[in-house]
Design a protein around this nucleic acid. Structure first.
Lengths: 349, 349
DNA sequence: GGACAATGTCGACACGCGTCGACTACTTAT
DNA sequence: ATAAGTAGTCGACGCGTGTCGACATTGTCC
């Protein structure tokens, strides 16, 4: 019967005693800060193995002032996690691990500044990764004057002094318009994210729409935007409203994955063929989401893995004392043609 | 210019000095373990406030052997997070917070037993919550003989000695069958999750299918199961195969949200009306997902919040020294009628 | 032969906190 | 008046590490 008693973790003292050396020698064998003879090292390592010794994380952290922990502030009660989020969480975790750091997802509401302040003050984590950053984000201020290194995934309006990685959303609209204009589309509908998110200053929404609208005006393209919540149902309604208002649109840009699926459903039910009758182009759909829409969507998006990896690396750079250099990174949009766009049906050549 | 210098955190010594008391007095003022005069307490609290004192988490943990941290092992490289997962993560976080614990999501692959062993050995977390539990899960053994208290969300095949919360999946199939049989359905299709998950021993799949098939045989109901990956595309294909093989099915049970959406799309395109031509019933769709399907689905599922809350509470109970009592909880299935089932079309009355 | 550096090891202390034992100044029961 | 508490406080120590200074040993270069 395997008793589930508390198997008291062996300590450095135990290892030292068993190996017949002093405690500091054990330390140096572990860290390599000072040379140790191969002979002694072997004895120590054997003792560690038979005792199942693992250094106590908290004692290590206390003594060295380095916990090896990074926090990824994990938004709760918000827009849910989509595939892209997953991608960069995974990539950031892996990148942090490569540098010897553990990345923890710390559930925390965006508004809960008090908890955040306590988290960084109690010194458990060495650095913080912030996602779902808003245009004006109260958390940034807290982090800034806490002295804790941090890196944003996204950015605030006023971020020239900050460390961040973000997608270059300003290019998404123009890139999409040029592509569609080349195909002859001059009347384009957009199904974007909910107005709530925009008003809260959600970066991807804010930064994308304006350049898109500005360029459309310059190019003489008619744009009609519908904002929808991130549900299939909302997407259906948005598509119906959109086509009712503007029956002549020949192309649709989607920036809201669930809503896009809803739009596709309605289009399918109406016998609208894609791309023959209607071109479709989606923002921000990840590779994993490719199978989530039928037909697959031609996409302008971001490499989530790249973002996550860069974020972790920037943060680690700050931890390693790089206080001076500007660490800011904007990923170029990725255009993936999956055949959901084609020549405009009226063929104005 | 707000300098971003390291504002060295005040320590207990600083507070003691400013308040003119000993360090231990500061401690007792904080913990209340021993009485402190109101007068001194006020001086101390004022000092703490002006110094911005927050106890150092690692020192506290080291001295008290209590870190106040719980880990929720967060599966990476797996089936993604769905809405229900979110629900119980959120609920568990909240429940843990109520008992004074922080719940961290610790990204960790299910197979990465070595990391897990290190995590619990280094003593950073006091307890562990395990999700995505498999029928045979190597992590359980590691936790068991590490002595770290843990609680499963889900269970293994051999879990009579373990602490867990889980949905009572064995009831889902029978409940669904009785409901459908009452409506006159005797030929039922099922679109379930991918075979990969089942073979890996993914509990919800395994525990649901057998009772469903057994009861169907007893009742003389024809069941045809298709396994599909969790994508809309796979759901479309599954539905097409299913209806090709069994053109006479009058009801469809879905246990795979994305695939279900795909099935709905195909059904819609074929002009199949729900529930007039085909009844549909879904397993495990959460309230949040209600808007993700059109029409909304009649559902047999689980209250994710309840699960998460119970899991956290059970774990905390173990931490508080409750070693003896059996802490195991199976949630009753929740039936929510959203009108997607109706009388079988052939009307065998 | 001695000066010097490099190698290998030990002891002592600090990190910031929890907590035990002891001590003082009272209060209450005897 | 004495014993027996109780409230309030202090000093010392321990938690398990990292790391600095000191020391002994060995090798190297003139």
């Amino acid at each position: 019967m395997s008793s589930t008693k508390k198997p008291k973790q062996a300590t450095r003292a135990d290892v030292a005693k068993m190996a017949g050396v002093s405690e500091s020698t054990v330390s140096y064998a572990l860290t390599g800060v000072r040379p140790i003879s191969d002979e002694t090292r072997e004895r120590i390592e054997e003792a560690m193995k038979t005792l199942g010794y693992v250094p106590n994380a908290m004692a290590q952290a206390l003594a060295s002032k380095k916990s090896g922990l990074l926090a990824l502030l994990f938004p709760v009660g918000e827009r849910g996690f989509d595939e892209t989020d997953f991608e960069y969480v995974e990539a950031a975790t892996a990148a942090a691990a490569e540098d010897g750091y553990q990345l923890l997802l710390w559930p925390n509401a965006v508004e809960d500044v008090a908890s955040l302040r306590k988290i960084v003050a109690q010194g458990l984590v060495e650095g913080v990764l912030l996602m779902e950053v808003r245009a004006q984000d109260p958390r940034v201020e807290v982090l800034r004057d806490s002295g804790t290194p941090f890196c944003l995934i996204g950015r605030t309006d006023d971020s020239q002094d900050l460390t961040f990685v973000d997608a270059d959303f300003s290019q998404w609209g123009p890139m999409a318009l040029h592509h569609l204009l080349d195909l002859g589309h001059t009347n384009i509908g957009v199904i974007s994210m909910s107005s709530d998110l925009l008003e809260a200053g959600y970066g991807p929404g804010v930064r994308t729409e304006k350049p898109l609208l500005d360029l459309a005006k310059r190019l003489g393209i008619t744009i009609t935007i519908k904002h929808a919540k991130a549900t299939i149902r909302a997407g259906r309604e948005a598509f119906e409203e959109l086509t009712a208002e503007q029956p002549d649109i020949t192309a649709l840009i989607g920036f809201n994955e669930p809503a896009l699926i809803g739009a596709l459903e309605v289009a399918g039910a109406r016998g609208i063929n894609i791309p023959e009758d209607l071109s479709m182009l989606s923002f921000g759909i990840s590779d994993e989401a490719e199978n989530m829409t039928v037909p697959a969507q031609t996409t302008i998006g971001v490499d989530g893995r790249e973002l996550g990896r860069m974020a972790a690396q920037y943060l680690v750079a700050r931890l390693n004392g790089d206080k001076k250099s500007v660490l800011q990174y904007l990923t170029q949009p990725q255009f993936v043609d999956r055949g959901s766009t084609g020549l405009a049906p009226l063929g104005q050549k």
